[in-house]
Every structure is written in structure tokens, then in C-alpha cells.
Design a protein around this nucleic acid. Structure first.
Length: 139
DNA sequence: GCCAACGTTGGC
DNA sequence: GCCAACGTTGGC
């Protein structure tokens, strides 16, 4: 079991839209970055992830689960780009803002802090637990 | 709205 | 294979 973080501009694809897709989930398409793609290729069914709203909100707002492993991205014919499908598991009780993450010394190593531009990124198990604690949910 | 950081592209 | 130019992302 691995943990991940998926970042999206809410104006493009929001948590509410993700929830509306229900248990069938939706493909996480549109990624055109090799690092992010490679992480998606590493994902397995049942892996969990944080759903992060970038831009104005800058906060983790929900938990998602990988429900299909990497397959070709349907939004392009370019065969370089793969993506996984994810489905909403549950919302957080308290959203965890970027400020909160930055303020917590234990989370200094998070990629979200160190490389803000990477849209799909791995999360350490220790980081997962701490963020869940801040979010008011059980890991 | 600006700009820094980063990734990609293409000419050499 | 290097590197300058360019485009995109996302925090501020």
C-alpha cells in the first residue's frame, strides 16, 4: 500500500466533481509530465491519496483511492501519456492548508513543500499519518 | 497579475 | 549532447 497526493485547480477539476463521479471514479487525465506519469505507473489498486486544491485554496480537501491502474490517457493520441483512475473515498473533517503543512516541522520533507509544481507525488507513510491527524480523520 | 522555478523543445 | 529560449505551473 502506497500513499500519494493529487493536485488540481478546482476551476479545472474539483473535489465536488470527483465526488459526483461516485465509486466508478474518473481518470486523472491531462498530466503531461514524465515524473508525474511515472508515479501513476507505479500505483496499485487500493492505494490511497490526498486530493489537493491548488491556486486560491491551497489545501487538502479529501481522500481518494486508486481504482484503475495506469492506462492510456483518453484525452490524447500521444502514447507517451498514461493515467490512473481515482475515486473519492471521503472528505476531510478539517481541510489541511499549505500553511499548516509548512508550519509543521515534521512535514518539512513533503514534496508539496519542496517541489510545488509536481502535480502527482508520493507521500511517506509517516507524512500520511500526520496529515490525517491534522485533517481530523483516521489514517 | 507577477514572477520564480521548473520542464520541454529545438537549433547547433 | 548541450544549452538558450520558451511555456506552464502555482504560490504570493
Amino acid at each position: 500500500m502506497a500513499y500519494w497526493l493529487f493536485k488540481s485547480e478546482p476551476s479545472t477539476w474539483s473535489w465536488d466533481q470527483q465526488v459526483a463521479k461516485g465509486s466508478a471514479g474518473e481518470e486523472w487525465d491531462g498530466v503531461r509530465n514524465y515524473q508525474a506519469r511515472n508515479f501513476m505507473r507505479d500505483m496499485k489498486i487500493g492505494d490511497l491519496g490526498f486530493f489537493y486544491h491548488s491556486q486560491k485554496e491551497k489545501a487538502i480537501v479529501g481522500i481518494i483511492e486508486v481504482c484503475a491502474t495506469a492506462h492510456p490517457d483518453s484525452t490524447t493520441d500521444d502514447e507517451r501519456w498514461d493515467c490512473v483512475d481515482i475515486r473519492a473515498v471521503k472528505p476531510v473533517v478539517h481541510s489541511v492548508s499549505l500553511d499548516m503543512i509548512k508550519a509543521d516541522r515534521r512535514l518539512d520533507g513533503m514534496i508539496l513543500v519542496k517541489n510545488s509544481r509536481l502535480s502527482v507525488q508520493p507521500v511517506q507513510e509517516s507524512e500520511w499519518k500526520i496529515v490525517c491527524e491534522l485533517a481530523g480523520i483516521s489514517p
